[in-house]
Every structure is written in structure tokens, then in C-alpha cells.
Design a protein around this nucleic acid. Structure first.
Lengths: 335, 335
DNA sequence: GCCCTTCGTCGAAGCGCTTCGATATGTCGG
DNA sequence: CCGACATATCGAAGCGCTTCGACGAAGGGC
């Protein structure tokens, strides 16, 4: 492998000049730069990452912590991950993949051994034990999600409260007054992933503000769970004309069960989903939905990490505004 | 951050002794080792990864290249990825996540800049352009999949040919003679991911060997695709008593469509799926299935990479034997 | 009792890069 | 024509670790 010295020799300059050509931190004349670049290309020189990290104390690597749980939402997680990798590459960074099951120890390991410049942490819970640990690290971190007390750790996420509001406004605008929410499974609420609560808060508050009659109900996974949930809704909010589904796993089954009970979508009931765009499009009927923009959130997380790394100002919490796209599953309620 | 010198001073030894305690490459007396370890713990010393990589030319990092395509099989990919991370940690390695869309350039970048010790590449195609590039790298690599000409690059995968054989043997044993294969979408065959072909080969050969009447048919995604596929099968192999489904995406719809056409599973027709265990279990009916052991394959890939790294012998191609688990979707054909 | 090992430890030389002065060469105003 | 100043480049120190050779101290065979 060629070293910076080989390049310097080949170009007839000193190693430091090569370094400055590479980093652009000092002015280099056009001719010199050209010679150096020619030598780099000819020798196929790639700077040694370790040496660079040692000398500069920057690694050009970001840590990404993903949940290991296989139970739910895997495609969304994958979307986040690929978005983070893609965005990192744009900034000339690579991504070190960690799993949540290593917990605090994993974060400390990669941070203390200076393997990464910053950390991006997914699936943060309300009182996530990793938060105090992150705060102690010398590297900055960005959370995807919104814990109770981020206290100085920057968070990015979709604005789920606004998403709920947007959904209800859409349905209300079309004339719906009785609206049910098929929420995530109780396990999600219990785990303390706050997006569920935030959506619920937005749902409840906007419902009150708009004077709607609504019911929110969590939904266990599987067909049985969905049946039970819908039965409860039918009992407690009979004649609901719209269903908001914030539960990807249940989505397809909800549609099937509505159909099975003789309700046509959207003629008899409207359905609005909260899910990634492609999920909404791959249903039997293209669903009106609020997108979960994993790609944008992942990109924003990286962007934010980069800002922190070069000391630029960043808002402590950044919630992306939701986008509701009207498709074929929502319409006016029947008269 | 404490350095090895700080530890050495605290323990009253030389830095090299600390290093040897850490690496175990030279004998160290029990007392000295204890003192050093105490100092390490007290100072919270973590060796600087860059410095270590520079001095030892080993990084303790593996590259993992995942496909970026969101179209299909995302959960399986995620399973591979987490398996690779988990297995890597067991061997004290970390994982650098690359996406396939960076292509050959990405591999060369991380390899030439000495960011990784070895590479694990998923989603390899029949004539994958990355293979010649990998061969040129000084780091070893392991492919998950089986290209046409691995030529010296080690491959690991499930033995899909054997999986097909196993499936047909199971059905044949229970008395089925007319068996249809609902295969992956034509796009998968076209892309040249060879697992589809390998399964098909096994299916065809075993069918001949057992004297079965079979039909293999690819299946386009979506309900329409499945309907078309089943219609073709009904036309070309009427009275099939068993369906082998090697298409995760189509699986649920196949079951629904069979039911819609009045065929009960398993009373009227048997269904055997080729898919991850959890998918088979999460269907309306627990399916008899051949597991796609993403976890094992990922683990084996890492294991193999480790072998290559310390120069141990490795078979050039390692195909895991399939496991068929009989559940509730297969039975004897109706009389 | 001497030589040869083996064991446990040290010292120093690098690994390949970045970065901080310092130096050399112009450039310009007065 | 000189000092002040910007511009382009160099040299050397050092980032924190590993590893090789060396060396004193024990232990063993003869």
C-alpha cells in the first residue's frame, strides 16, 4: 500500500503538502495540487484510516445503534439504517452498526476507544438508561425519538402529535364526526417508546378542539387482536365512520376485517393509516396516509450530527412536520 | 482519556508490559497482570482504536455490505445483519455497514484505507461485478450467496437445492403426487440471485427422481400476481394437492386465495413455505416450512471470516443443510 | 559450578498521518 | 527601496499503540 510519503516523493513535495492537498486546510498552488493529485491517482493512494484517526482525532465514522427486536417494524428500521448510511456517505462518513442489546456498554466501548465521531441512537425509550451514559461521552449524539428528558442530547423525529392532528383535521374536514383510533399494541406503550403516546396526545387534544367523538384503542398483534379491538370499538363507539390506524402490523387485517363485517372502504368507512408510504401503497387499496418518513428522519439525524461535529448551532429537538397524502381509502362519510 | 502510558505509570510497569497484558502475546506474571488490570479499571482505560490499527495493522472491524433495495425481503436482510453484528461481537469485532449501491468503489474504499479486516457481502448475484474487485483486495471476504464463479472467494448459504429436495420428499412421503411451486418473482430470477435457481434445480431434479408431477411457476408480487400464478397452475397442473411457496411476499396472499377458491389447508391442499421461522409461525395457520436460517448463515459468515483472518483452513463453499419443520399446513392429500 | 534455557520485563523503533511553527518568495504601499 | 504582509511550502514533532530485540533472574542438565 502506498503511503503519503510515497505520494510526496512521486510528486516531488513534502508529505505535509500532500496532506494539505487532501484536507484543503492550507492554500496550495494549482500546479502543485495537480502534481500531487496525479501522484495519488497513479499510486492508488488511500490514506490509512487508523493513522488519520490517531493524528487528527477524527475517525469519519458514525455509530448507529439499532434495536435488535425482530418483533415489529423491521422494514422501518431498515429504512432508517439505510438512510443514515446514505446520508453519512454524502458527508464522507461511514457507519458502525451497533445493536441495542449491547446497551450502555456498547456505546461506551466505541466512544472510549475513539472508533466514532458521533452516535445516532434509535428506538429510545421514555427513561432510556442510555441517555445519562451518552451525556458523559466526549462524542456528541443524536437520538431518533423523543425521551422524557433528553437534557442536552439532540433529538429528531416525526412530529407525531401534529400527525394525529393532521389526520383528524382531514377526516373532520370531510365531515367525519365519529372517529376511532386503532393504536399500537399495549406492549409498545408499555415499553415507553414515546411516539405512541405523542400520537395519542395529539389525537385526544385535537379531537377535543374539533368537538369530535373519538375513541382510542390499542390493538394486540394478530388477527385475534384486531378482531377484539374492532369489537370493542364497535361497542364503545358504534357507528364510527372513520378509522385511524397507527399500527402497521394490524393494518392489512383491519382492512380485511372491515370488509368481512360488510363495511366498504371508503364508501362506508374511511381509513387513514400512519405508516411508511410504500406500505400504504401496497395495500389492496392505496391508503390515505400520514407518511413515516424514515428516510428524512435518518438524513436529518446525520445532518444534525454533522452540525454538532463542526460546532454549528442546533435546535435541541427537531420534529419533522407530517405529510398527509389523500389516496383512495378516505372519503365523505355516508349520509 | 487515559493512555497506555498512564496505565503503565500507575501500575509501575512499562507500556509494553501493559500491551502484553492486554494482548496476551507474552507471558506476564500473575502479580504484574493484576496490578495492570487494576490500573486499567481504575483509569477507565480503553485502547485507542486508531493507534492500535496503525501499530498492528488490524482493526477488529468487519465490513458488511447489505442490499439497499427496499422491495423485498427486508426482514430477512435485517436478520442477517443483526446475526452478523452479534456474532462479530463474540469475536470482539465491530461491523461497518455499507450499502450495495456504493458498489465496487465502497468495498475498495474501506479496504484500501484499512478500515476493516475482512468483508462480508450479501445479495451476491450470478456474475457479480464485485467479485473480481474483492479478489484484488488484501483483506479476505465471505459471500452470503453463491455466484457462478466464486473462484477462491469463500461462500456460505443455505443449501437451497437440498431444501427443495427435502420439501418434495416430505410431501411425497405423505402421498402427494401433483405438486406446484409458487416461486419468486421473475425479477428475482432475472437479477441473478442464484438461490432461486438453486431451489428450482433441486425441485426439478427431485421431482424427476421421485416420479412426481410438478409445475414450477414464478409469481409476480401483489394480489394480482398471485391470482395469475395460481390460475396458471390450476390450468397447467389441475388437481395439484400441494403448493410449495418460495416467495415470502406472496405467502399470505396464496393462503387467502386458496381459501377464496374453496380449498381448505391442509384438508384439501397442503402448503409448505420456504421462509424464516417467524414468518411461518405468524400466518393465520402455522405453516410447515423449511427455515431460512438467517441467523445461522450470518453467524457462519462471521465464523468463516475469523478463520480466514487467522489463517485457518476453510472450505470454499459451505451450504447449510435445510431443516423442514412440520406444522399445520401439510397433511395427506384427500382421497 | 557452568552453560544454556526459559520467564518476565523493559526500551525503543516505528506504524502513517496531521498540524504547528518556520521559511522562502512574492506583492504592494509609501 | 524598504518594511509589512500575504501566499506557498517544508520539517519535525507527536498522536497512542504494538512488537522486536535485549537483558537480568531463575531453573535445569551435566
Amino acid at each position: 500500500m502506498a503511503t503519503i510519503n510515497d505520494v510526496a516523493r512521486a510528486a516531488g513535495v513534502s508529505p505535509s503538502t500532500v496532506s494539505y492537498v487532501l484536507s484543503g486546510r492550507r492554500p496550495i498552488s494549482a500546479q502543485t495540487r495537480a502534481r500531487v493529485q496525479a501522484a495519488i491517482a497513479e499510486l492508488g493512494f488511500h490514506p490509512h484510516a487508523g493513522a488519520r484517526a490517531l493524528a487528527s482525532s477524527r475517525t469519519s465514522v458514525l455509530a448507529l445503534v439499532v434495536p435488535l427486536r425482530v418483533d415489529v417494524n423491521v422494514p422501518v428500521i431498515m429504512q432508517f439504517a439505510t438512510a443514515v448510511v446514505t446520508a453519512s456517505r454524502v458527508h464522507n462518513h461511514d457507519v458502525l452498526l451497533l445493536t441495542k442489546d449491547e446497551g450502555t456498554a456498547g456505546l461506551e466501548r466505541v466512544a472510549h476507544s475513539t472508533m466514532v465521531d458521533a452516535l445516532i441512537v434509535m428506538d429510545v425509550e421514555r427513561d432510556d438508561v442510555r441517555i445519562p451514559a451518552l451525556r458523559r461521552l466526549k462524542q456528541p449524539s443524536v437520538l431518533i425519538g423523543l425521551p422524557e428528558a433528553p437534557d442536552g442530547i439532540v433529538c429528531v423525529d416525526l412530529d407525531f402529535e401534529a400527525a394525529a392532528a393532521e389526520t383528524l383535521r382531514h377526516l373532520s374536514f370531510h365531515g367525519h364526526r365519529r372517529i376511532a383510533l386503532v393504536g399500537p399494541s399495549p406492549a409498545v406503550y408499555k415499553r415507553g417508546t414515546t411516539y405512541a403516546e405523542r400520537f395519542l396526545t395529539g389525537f385526544t387534544e385535537t379531537s377535543a378542539a374539533l368537538g369530535l367523538q373519538t375513541l382510542a384503542h390499542p390493538c394486540e398483534p394478530g388477527r385475534e387482536g384486531v378482531r377484539a379491538c374492532l369489537a370493542d370499538i364497535d361497542a364503545q363507539l358504534p357507528g364510527a365512520t372513520a378509522f385511524v390506524v397507527h399500527n402497521e402490523e394490524a393494518l392489512r387485517i383491519v382492512l380485511e376485517e372491515l370488509q368481512a363485517s360488510g363495511r366498504r372502504v371508503p364508501a362506508d368507512v374511511s381509513v387513514v393509516a400512519v405508516c411508511p408510504r410504500d406500505v400504504a401503497l401496497n395495500m389492496p387499496l392505496p391508503l390515505t396516509s400520514v407518511d413515516i418518513p424514515a428516510h428524512d428522519v435518518g438524513g436529518l439525524a446525520v445532518e444534525t450530527a454533522m452540525k454538532l461535529l463542526d460546532g454549528r448551532h442546533t435546535e435541541p429537538v427537531r420534529l419533522l412536520p407530517p405529510t398527509l397524502v389523500e389516496r383512495e381509502s378516505s372519503a365523505r362519510p355516508p349520509d
